[in-house]
Simulated scan of single mutants.
Amino acid sequence: MNKTPSEARAWAEDLAERLSPGDAELAVMAPAIALPALAAHLPAGVSVGAQDLSAHESGAYTGEISAAMLVDVGTRYAVVGHSERREYHGESDAVVAAKARQAQQNGITPIVCVGEGLDVRERGEQVPYTLTQLAGSLEGVGEDVVVAYEPVWAIGTGKTATADDAEELASAIREALRERYGNAAEEVRVLYGGSVKPDNIAAICAKPNVNGALVGGASLKVPDVLGMNDALK
């Protein structure tokens, strides 16, 4: 919940002036109210995505944003099941799966977030916990999906899982995706999210099962975005 629509437009214009093409695909996940401005002013090739969407197609759901509304303003991706939605809004795996299905039914690729808290990590149960969460969050969801592993203890804390930590879970997630989707699982991108910065993104994304990053606070400043993009060239 950062930046007004006018601030988002200025951020996008600044990025458009300074971004040089790289090897990474970039997409900006923003509050729904800022998506039209971003779609109009982001550099060519940079996609827009929503931070959430409704599990319902339409109707008397005051305050909700439907997938069709997002498609109408050029949205390509939608984050579902972010740890903050799970924690602060009580979203269950079943709700996350319903949102992911709704996204897919409208041509939006869902970015399904999973990951453990510090208590789970300290018990050494991060793999089974995350895979159980993943299974519930992908119920009825097709293979046109992105999975983001975000260890909750590393979000906004300054703590970062090591590249090996990220690969441990990404590898387990990849195997679970193979069991669910077969050969199509090789095309599913698995992202890491949790205090990603210009100085650590390359090492994390160099791991064989990590295909990118779900960036939080570092995305708010254009120089940091440029630094991360350059680090992946």
Rank of each mutant, 00 (worst) to 15 (best):
S58C: 09
S58Q: 13
G59M: 09
A60N: 13
A60H: 10
T62C: 12
T62R: 03
G63E: 05
G63A: 12
E64H: 14
E64W: 05
I65E: 01
A68D: 15
L70C: 09
D72I: 01
T75W: 08
T75G: 01
T75F: 07
R76V: 08
R76S: 14
R76K: 14
Y77I: 14
Y77H: 15
V79N: 00
V79D: 00
V79M: 15
H82G: 04
S83M: 08
S83L: 08
E84P: 13
R85A: 10
R86D: 06
R86F: 14
E87G: 04
E87Y: 05
E91H: 12
S92W: 10
D93C: 07
A94L: 15
V95F: 02
V96A: 02
K99I: 09
A100P: 02
A100T: 07
R101W: 13
Q104V: 10
N106F: 08
N106Y: 09
G107H: 12
I108L: 14
I108T: 06
P110A: 04
P110F: 09
V114W: 09
V114D: 00
G115V: 13
G115T: 14
G115E: 01
L118V: 11
D119I: 02
V120W: 06
R121K: 15
E122K: 15
R123I: 00
G124M: 05
E125L: 09
Q126G: 04
Q126S: 13
V127A: 09
P128D: 00
Y129E: 11
T130V: 12
L131R: 10
L131G: 13
L131V: 10
T132S: 05
Q133I: 05
L134P: 06
L134A: 03
L134I: 03
L134Q: 00
S137C: 09
L138P: 04
V141E: 01
G142P: 04
E143N: 13
V145C: 04
V146F: 07
A148D: 01
P151F: 07
W153L: 04
W153C: 03
A154L: 11
T160Q: 11
A163N: 03
A163V: 09
A166Q: 03
L169D: 02
A170W: 13
A170L: 03
A170Y: 08
I173L: 15
R174N: 07
A176W: 03
A176M: 11
A176G: 09
L177Q: 02
R178V: 12
E179F: 01
R180K: 12
N183H: 12
N183V: 11
A185Q: 14
E187W: 00
R189D: 11
L191N: 03
L191C: 05
G193E: 01
G194H: 01
S195R: 06
